[in-house]
Design a protein around this nucleic acid. Sequence first.
DNA 1: TTTAGCACTCTTTATCCCCGAGTGCTAACT
DNA 2: AGTTAGCACTCGGGGATAAAGAGTGCTAAA
Lengths: 350, 350
Amino acid sequence: MELTTRKKEILKILVDSYIATAEPLGSKAIAERMAEKVSSATVRNELADLSEMGYLEQPHTSAGRIPSAKGYRLYVNELMERKDIDGEEADAIRATMQRELRGTDQLIARTGQMVSSFMDYPTYAVTDHREVATVRRFELLYVDALSVISVVMLSDSRVKSTLLHMELPLQEEALQSVSPLLNTHFTGLSQQQMHAKIMNLTDQVAPESFLLLNRVVDYAADLLEETSQKQVYVGGASQLLKIPEFRDLDKAHDLMHFMSDSSAQLPIPAGDAPMQILIGPENVSEALKESSVVVASYDIGDGMRGLVGVVGPTRMDYAAVAARLSFFAESLTKMFGKAQQLPPKEEQTP
Amino acid sequence: MELTTRKKEILKILVDSYIATAEPLGSKAIAERMAEKVSSATVRNELADLSEMGYLEQPHTSAGRIPSAKGYRLYVNELMERKDIDGEEADAIRATMQRELRGTDQLIARTGQMVSSFMDYPTYAVTDHREVATVRRFELLYVDALSVISVVMLSDSRVKSTLLHMELPLQEEALQSVSPLLNTHFTGLSQQQMHAKIMNLTDQVAPESFLLLNRVVDYAADLLEETSQKQVYVGGASQLLKIPEFRDLDKAHDLMHFMSDSSAQLPIPAGDAPMQILIGPENVSEALKESSVVVASYDIGDGMRGLVGVVGPTRMDYAAVAARLSFFAESLTKMFGKAQQLPPKEEQTP
DNA sequence: TTTAGCACTCTTTATCCCCGAGTGCTAACT
DNA sequence: AGTTAGCACTCGGGGATAAAGAGTGCTAAA
């Protein structure tokens, strides 16, 4: 059977309405909203066709139709009017970004929180490491005989540091000997390699230096471990409860639980796509089969990208969510680019 | 009217049962569970007295009684059997702690997550800074002409660092001049003081050095700002939906929203109390008036304490929650103590 | 002071029934 | 061949009514 323009028009009207109201729409109401004047009977025939083709579903015999996942997919791909975020909101978002994203730490959490505050749906933010980080450089700073500051610069340009406490007192000079050792033997290695290597050095170093060495390497290894796990932020979960689809407590609970406890399985855009929309059963995770996800990626620099996603009912307002999300992603890329690039080149993504 | 032993016994039976089942208990059922054999009519008389004294409430005329906030308070203070966490669970918790709490970063989030996984209720974790942090020491490390690592040690012994990008190229020697400047003029200051001071130095330093100086001070000021805000972790919110009291979507939504968005107002124990229980209307925040909170504090060292709290219905199992929470708090104090204390003194809180 | 008895209250649950929205089909119309 | 009008049918929602059950409060007797 063929998908005529009129069928598409009907589908669009139906999806638009269902997105707005969460109520099935009857043939009569559809007929009234159509450009060309037709009777409800005609619409009924078309609806029957659309159902047969799998674009629509019926909750029960005597209710109106609602879109199926396949219907939403068509809507998203072809029918939906691509919205742009309105100027006022864009300004508000930019302002918040300037204000919130200044610091250095917990960028993911703060990004997520901010995105969440601009969305009517639950939101998540994660990092996606394309390559495994290694240590690029070690530095040690003397504090007192029992404490040393260890500074570690990672291959992705992040710098981490901590205060280490020693059990045995150390000469300040010991640092001078341990530091080169670290930089020659322990840069560019994976966790496992680091742990393996330190075994070999046991007898080649003075005991109190070895202790320090060990401490620093442990710290660095922990860092790599920590870094390789993706950070996740989930926010706005309470919004779920305002959505009619999740009036069912069990559904709401399952989804919330999934988002906070299995957050590692939240979708990330395939390949390098800047944005992806996953509708209902297109999701891999069982818990998301009745929900949709819109997720966008932005560039953090240094081979890392960040992801922000929105979870909602299949009925969610894809156009609006996608518009906001891509605005966020673009702004974030711009912002991180600006902050981290050395030459002050403005507007790299105009 | 007097609060006889029998009245207390009845109250205890009632609260115990109500905590377990969330169902009001009738006079007949209570009579059956009492040590001394009495008739339901007697119990009814006692119940009437307890109601009059304000320890009980009646949802409606012909339902059983349920405890009032005052009733729970009496129960918590006098009647409740102080439980101890059982050995098996203690082992499980200790094991998880060893495993989860090794890293260095995001300790609060990880602590919260861990506590949450052992509780059947929503959980929060926050830091409580008793004093405002200042910078104790600055260090600069040369990377290349346009990048410098800035290391900042704070008065609470935390060490933070970042990579700074310069707009103007720098000699490695410039670091030698800026570093002492930082350490003499900018240690021990508040944010505002730092910003004020840098104004005064504008003309006293070479321009490219001033740029660096400015960058480092900005970074440090941001750090202080960041540090002074309390970090908050909220977890296990989805558990709320499994609790009969929160079957009401609006109630659940309000509480969840409060926990994640107004988390700064979550209770912390008054003074130095190691643990506090707040029952229903005893809570300051409006959103918590129908819930109870159990919160415990632990010592992180360096003038900071951490807090972990549990939010539940007024009907929550205070004995079990309190037992677990104080076990957590004690273990955490021990753990942070052990990790940070210089001499290997074991068991400082036996 | 305790207990048995009893009327009364109020919620919960089930059942029935009606209403309306919406469909699917047929037959007529263009 | 596509469109329309007409009509019987289906199904869920909402309201009313009724019966059941749990628990109380009060009275009067032990």
